[in-house]
Amino acid sequence: MIVFNQILRQQQQVIFDANTGTFSPIDGNKIERSNGNFSEFGEHTFALYVDFGILCFQWNDHRWDMTSSNLVIEYQHDFKMQATMFAVNGLKIEYPAWWKNDPHFDPNLPELDEDEDYFGYIFSVKQNQRLQHNLTVAWG
Results as ranks from 00 to 15, higher is better:
M1S: 05
I2Y: 04
I2H: 06
I2V: 13
V3R: 14
F4V: 15
Q6T: 05
Q6H: 03
I7D: 01
I7Y: 08
L8D: 13
Q10V: 12
Q10S: 15
Q11S: 10
Q11T: 14
Q11R: 13
Q12A: 15
Q12K: 13
Q13T: 11
Q13L: 14
F16E: 02
F16R: 09
D17Q: 06
A18N: 05
N19W: 03
T20H: 03
T22R: 14
T22I: 08
F23N: 05
F23D: 15
I26L: 09
I26S: 06
D27K: 11
G28L: 11
N29R: 14
K30M: 13
K30S: 13
N35C: 14
N35Y: 07
G36L: 05
N37K: 03
N37P: 01
F38C: 03
F38D: 02
S39P: 06
E40F: 10
F41A: 01
F41Y: 15
F41E: 02
G42C: 09
G42W: 11
E43M: 03
E43P: 15
H44A: 02
H44Y: 15
H44F: 06
A47L: 11
L48M: 07
Y49N: 09
Y49L: 07
Y49V: 03
Y49E: 04
V50G: 03
V50L: 06
V50W: 15
I54G: 07
L55I: 10
W59Y: 09
D61A: 04
D61H: 10
H62R: 11
H62C: 05
R63P: 03
R63T: 08
R63F: 06
D65A: 01
M66C: 09
S68C: 10
S68E: 12
S69Y: 06
V72M: 04
I73E: 00
E74T: 13
Y75W: 07
Q76T: 03
Q76W: 01
H77P: 05
D78Q: 09
K80Q: 04
Q82K: 08
T84W: 00
M85S: 13
F86H: 02
F86K: 01
A87V: 04
A87N: 06
V88S: 00
N89L: 02
N89S: 07
N89Y: 05
N89Q: 08
G90H: 08
L91E: 10
L91T: 03
L91Q: 10
K92S: 05
I93L: 07
Y95H: 01
W98N: 00
W98L: 01
W98D: 02
W99H: 01
W99R: 06
K100P: 07
K100Y: 01
N101Y: 15
P103M: 14
P103Y: 12
F105Q: 02
F105V: 08
F105M: 06
N108S: 02
N108Y: 14
L109P: 02
E111Y: 12
E111N: 15
L112H: 10
E114Q: 13
E116K: 02
Y118D: 00
Y121W: 13
I122G: 00
I122Y: 08
F123H: 12
S124G: 04
N128S: 03
N128Y: 06
Q129C: 12
L131Q: 13
L131K: 04
Q132A: 02
H133S: 11
H133T: 09
H133C: 06
N134G: 00
L135D: 05
L135T: 04
W139M: 09
